[in-house]
Design a protein around this nucleic acid. Structure first.
Lengths: 263, 263
DNA sequence: TAGTGGTCTAGACCACGTG
DNA sequence: ACGTGGTCTAGACCACTAC
């Protein structure tokens, strides 16, 4: 056949180090996703169509999609199409919820049937960002924020106290009603109502003596040792979305994390 | 050209659901790796050679290798070859060490320059497994185990107390000398001296009041709140390798974990 | 039957590391 | 100059889902 390929010729990065074509395609796809169309049940254009539109081979297009699928940004369904990954299923829920009862060492491997927590909103207010919140969310101190307080129960026992902080500029018109009536997780709410996709989160945990207010919520003695987790949730471009301080009663539950070479 | 491919024809799984060829190849590669040759600086056979030997196309071979690379089991080095992932470099170290100073919120993104802990062995003994150890390591209570105690310091301050338990059957002829003189991490030692590759670990964390002995090692008041982490390290086939209880002084350091859709 | 993603092949050329 | 992995292409066929 003797056909010359011209990799890096169709779409080189002028002057720069010329990112591989499939990386450029990946970025292109990310833009499409971030634009927000294709949110609800609608599949992306077919691989053949995308490859044609971008004037690349289907193999290269698939390489780009492969990476996004591996990052759980897209999901493929054979015979149906490729979709942006939904935030509403149980599987995703437990990407960000890592509390487990301490019992049942029957099966060692991970999540077989994790329990869904029962969430109750016990506070909702609009206020000005303090220093810590502003630094975390990368806004100016004093800018308006929403503060939401939740308690989470497993088997009727309150195990976690959550304090969420959201930038009011990012979450315009957020109301307590929407928070209380949300269908599933808050991250699904961010996506459906505000087009914000949480991609990653970093958590920093420390042991502290429970404060009076939180101790009452968790039904532990005053100054009892609890774990305090500071979480920052991020979207595309590592932009901060939510700052959250969780306090966990670890008398009967563990804060679980899986360290893997596959991380 | 009009050449018919015969996918699933060269190497179908008789009777069964016929795993894709590249998955079969992946297993083949895993066997090669587990066999233990290719441990020290020696590259695997080249992709072209492997594809030829297995009578498959190079694309399929690469697909299999891609997955193992993504799982950090193999690493590729352009111009040199493909190697089994070493356990001795800094990058890997921090796959399993997630303690960070609480300061410096300068750069939000992860590990730019994490500090290497200074490790000191403060105990080494051969004993019989108690109930908890036996259950974790999946051996019988009373079977011989090694117990090792370490303390880890960051910036000259002791931050972590570790208590490791290893099955003596799995680690024959382990000596205190080898542990003290180890070049880098213990997981590198497991690999070089015993051919055991740690692939994953699960950690369960809880807040507790520090016991007297540990409190002294960590220089915290008696009954001070600390985090206790129970780790089980696993190798191929999810076989338990090491059971470890770490106690962390979180006065100035955090126990960090990154939750990601890319998990 | 038609359209989608999933697998596999064969081969060209590029970029890196070593001699 | 040579061998290694890295990228890209073009096309065939399979498996699933819809209509």
């Amino acid at each position: 056949m003797e056909i010359k390929n011209k990799p890096g010729h169709l779409k080189p990065l002028a002057g720069a180090a010329s990112l591989p074509l499939y990386r450029q395609v990946k970025r292109e796809l990310q833009k499409i996703i971030e634009a927000g169309h294709y949110g609800s049940g609608k599949p992306l254009p077919s691989e053949a169509a995308l490859a044609l539109a971008l004037q690349i081979s289907i193999g290269t297009l698939r390489h780009a999609v492969d990476e996004l699928v591996h990052e759980h940004v897209l999901v493929r369904r054979q015979g149906k199409g490729t979709f942006v990954a939904p935030h509403n299923n149980a599987r995703f829920m437990f990407q960000f919820f890592h509390i487990e009862p301490r019992s049942a060492p029957e099966d060692d491997d991970t999540l077989l049937e994790q329990e869904f927590p029962e969430i109750a909103c016990i506070g909702f207010a609009r206020d000005k960002a303090d220093a810590a919140e502003a630094r975390a969310l990368r806004i100016k101190p004093g800018e308006p924020v929403f503060r939401i307080e939740n308690k989470l129960a497993l088997r009727r026992r309150v195990v976690v106290h959550d304090k969420l902080t959201l930038s009011a500029a990012m979450f315009r018109n957020l109301t307590e009603k929407r928070f209380v009536e949300r269908p599933s997780t808050v991250y699904a709410l961010y996506q459906t109502d505000f087009g914000i996709t949480v991609l990653r989160a970093q958590e920093r945990a420390r042991a502290v003596a429970a404060g009076k207010a939180v101790a009452r919520v968790l039904s532990v003695p005053d100054a009892f040792p609890v774990i305090e987790v500071h979480r920052l949730a991020l979207t595309f471009g590592d932009k901060p979305v939510e700052y959250r301080v969780s306090t966990i009663n670890t008398q009967a539950h563990d804060y679980v994390s899986v360290l893997s070479k596959t991380s």
